[in-house]
């Protein structure tokens, strides 16, 4: 094992974490502001990827596809908020889980009817193909671009929430929704906007990741599960927590998959070590979550301490 390999794996973990952040930011925002558990967040990720692939296929331009993916996810998010979610704010979490689980099934089958049962093709834009030499190791340019994009979105979100009037309203909505409604803020419009924003971020993640993954029905659910782990670790409702949680999960998952089989190989034969290492590695992030819940039951950055 060399320093170059470790460095490359660290970058891989960072990139994976930042994509998880795009997913979990929307999830945690929606939960923090509206108190809503949205299982259909993964479906919005899928919608982003499918519309990006379809638009990129039609126009031959990845960037148009990216815009289409984000727009479609945001539009789907707004539509879902207005038609379904609005009725769920006052219901308990179990009702929300049930309703949004139904949405997963509806959106998955809807996507299959619209785009067919076979995975779609979406390629990395020509501008970002190939590798760059980072001194220690060559690294795919597209993954580097994903890191930059993830950091850029994180910065944008921080500015939006911390430095704008809209951000003040979002934070106020988290703390006391009755009071800001009484102060004359259009809380309905605010909720629709926040939900659409979260959906757009999920759509962006889906479109970006779709270029290096399989664009297929059900692609959102594995990411959704990890996104829930991230927001539980980070503290539900906290954007900062989502960032730290996502980076932790991304780096620990990647490093675990890489290092654990090698650790097991010290005392097992290679085939068994690989199997055992892989099995333990797939549990690692959940062990991390359990550990953090024991030490800090409300996550690393609790919102309503």
């Amino acid at each position: 094992m060399t320093a170059a390999l470790l460095f490359e794996q660290f970058l891989n973990g960072l990139q994976f974490g930042l994509m998880l952040f795009l997913m979990s930011a929307g999830l945690t925002l929606v939960f923090g502001v509206m108190g809503l558990i949205n299982l259909a967040h993964g479906s919005l990720f899928m919608i982003g990827a499918f519309f990006c692939a379809a638009a990129a296929g039609l126009t031959g331009n990845f960037w148009l596809g990216l815009a289409a993916g984000m727009a479609a996810a945001a539009a789907a998010g707004a539509l879902i908020e207005v038609t379904v979610m609005r009725r769920l704010y006052t219901r308990d979490h179990l009702d929300q889980v049930l309703a949004t689980f139904a949405l997963i099934l509806i959106l998955s089958e809807g996507t299959k009817i619209l785009f067919g049962p076979f995975p779609l093709y979406l390629d990395v834009p020509p501008l970002l193909t190939g590798t760059v030499n980072l001194g220690l190791t060559p690294y795919p340019l597209y993954r580097l671009a994903l890191i930059v994009a993830g950091l850029g979105v994180a910065l944008g979100l921080w500015l939006l929430i911390g430095r704008t009037r809209l951000g003040i309203r979002i934070r106020a909505g988290e703390n006391d929704r009755e009071m800001i409604a009484a102060l004359g803020v259009n809380i309905r419009a605010l909720y629709t906007f926040v939900f659409a924003l979260g959906a757009a971020l999920a759509g962006l993640a889906g479109a970006l990741v779709g270029a290096v993954q399989s664009v297929q029905v059900g692609m959102g659910e594995p990411v959704l599960i990890l996104a829930f782990v991230v927001i539980v670790i980070g503290g539900i409702g906290s954007i900062r927590g989502a960032m730290v949680g996502a980076l932790l999960v991304g780096v620990i998952d990647t490093m675990g998959r890489f290092l654990l089989p090698q650790v097991f190989a010290l005392f097992l034969d290679p085939s068994k070590a690989s199997g055992a290492g892989a099995a333990l590695a797939s549990m690692l992030v959940y062990l991390l979550m359990a550990l953090i819940l024991v030490i800090r039951p409300k996550g690393l950055f609790p919102v309503h301490a």
Binding site: N12, F16, V209, Q213
Partner: peptide, 8 residues
């Protein structure tokens, strides 16, 4: 879905 670690 992500094979960066294996490819490395």
């Amino acid at each position: 879905t992500d094979f960066a670690a294996e490819i490395a």
